[in-house]
């Protein structure tokens, strides 16, 4: 969704097209992931603001291209690492379904990696990195538990190490205080996605112009 907002605002026409394409890829990936969860018997969550488990970095639209680049180069990589860990785990549905996703994400990583070289904003990269680390979660918690059961092929330490290796960022911020960590939404800071974006995601604007039964 945030990628799509930049499909006519990126610094070059090629980057506009890439933003649109990556946004479409990620919508497709969401559909595959939700479909897999349903097949594995996970109940649907109600579509309400408090159920959105997005990282804080996605709460508000990005106002600067460097914010897009940090999301693309850091957060997208973190999500891909988790997909890789699921595809390498012992759940057959995920092992078979997520491979194509990893192939597509390879191009997102190339895009993010190259743009990070040009427009690295230390503050944006560090914020994205911190959000990614919080999203992965603390050591000895659910991710490590799933790793222990073989559902994930990587644990927290490995995921963190791989992310820092790929991003090439030296952590500068203070250690994460996990006391307020929300295990469901996988974030520490409260808040959520902005109202306008939420309306678009829930199709509220469409419903206003197309009443039920029309």
């Amino acid at each position: 969704m945030r990628y799509a907002e930049w499909c006519i605002a990126a610094p070059t026409l090629e980057a506009d097209i890439a933003a649109a394409a990556m946004g479409l890829d990620d919508i497709g990936h969401s559909r595959v992931l939700y479909g897999s969860l349903r097949e594995l018997g996970t109940p649907d969550v109600p579509d309400e603001p408090s159920s959105y488990a997005n990282v804080p970095y996605l709460d508000r639209p990005w106002t600067d291209w460097t914010a897009f680049v940090a999301a693309n180069g850091v957060l997208d990589n973190a999500f891909t690492l988790m997909i890789e860990a699921l595809a390498g785990g012992n759940v057959e549905v995920l092992r078979s379904r997520l491979k194509k996703m990893l192939q597509e994400e390879r191009y997102h990583a190339m895009h993010g990696h190259s743009w990070l070289r040009e427009s690295r904003s230390a503050a944006a990269v560090e914020q994205a990195r911190r959000d990614a680390m919080v999203w992965i979660g603390p050591e000895g918690d659910d991710v490590d538990d799933l790793h222990g059961k073989g559902i994930l092929s990587m644990g927290v330490r490995e995921l963190r190490r791989r992310l820092d290796e790929q991003v090439g960022a030296a952590p500068t911020s203070s250690p994460i205080d996990w006391k307020a960590w929300d295990t469901t939404r996988r974030r520490i800071s409260p808040g959520g996605i902005d109202e306008l974006t939420l309306g678009v995601l829930q199709g509220l604007a469409e419903k206003r112009y197309m009443p039920a039964g029309a």
């Binding site: 090629e14 097209i17 990556m22 895009h111």
Partner: peptide, 19 residues
């Protein structure tokens, strides 16, 4: 054709534009 500063971005652009 695509225009890019390096091979990595050129690959990402080619795939996004001509896929």
């Amino acid at each position: 054709a695509v225009v890019a500063p390096d091979d990595e971005l050129a690959m990402a652009y080619a795939r996004a534009t001509y896929d």
